[in-house]
């Protein structure tokens, strides 16, 4: 629901599961915590690596949507310089 703030005192995406695309081969899927000068802080993060053999990113996201995210990082900071795009997982799956 666009425009609805989940936690009024926090970033709009706080607590929301997002797809964070980087400028490199990695895409992260996990719970957005906050964003500051260092970058984006996330929790319970699964990782897709386009440089590895296996599923496509679309297949990876579909699997996340159906079976949930298999976390590889409990807490992760993605540097600001790496962040290309952030989108809610539910929107990425439409």
């Amino acid at each position: 629901m666009t425009g609805r703030i989940f936690h009024p005192d926090r970033h709009e995406l706080h607590g929301i599961t997002v797809v964070l695309e980087t400028h490199g081969p990695r895409t992260y899927v996990g719970r957005f915590d906050s964003q500051d000068d260092q970058g984006v802080h996330m929790h319970d993060v699964g990782v897709y690596d386009a440089s590895a053999d296996g599923a496509t990113k679309a297949e990876f996201l579909q699997r996340c949507g159906k079976f949930g995210i298999r976390p590889e990082h409990r807490d992760l900071l993605v540097p600001s310089t790496d962040v290309a795009r952030i989108e809610r997982l539910v929107d990425a799956l439409r």
């Binding site: 629901m1 929301i16 599961t17 949507g65 159906k66 949930g68 809610r88 539910v90």
Partner: peptide, 15 residues
């Protein structure tokens, strides 16, 4: 059928 957290968070109860 399974409903994950990501299908709940930020969505109105009616949806």
């Amino acid at each position: 059928h399974f409903v994950h957290r990501h299908q709940i968070e930020g969505r109105p109860p009616q949806a």
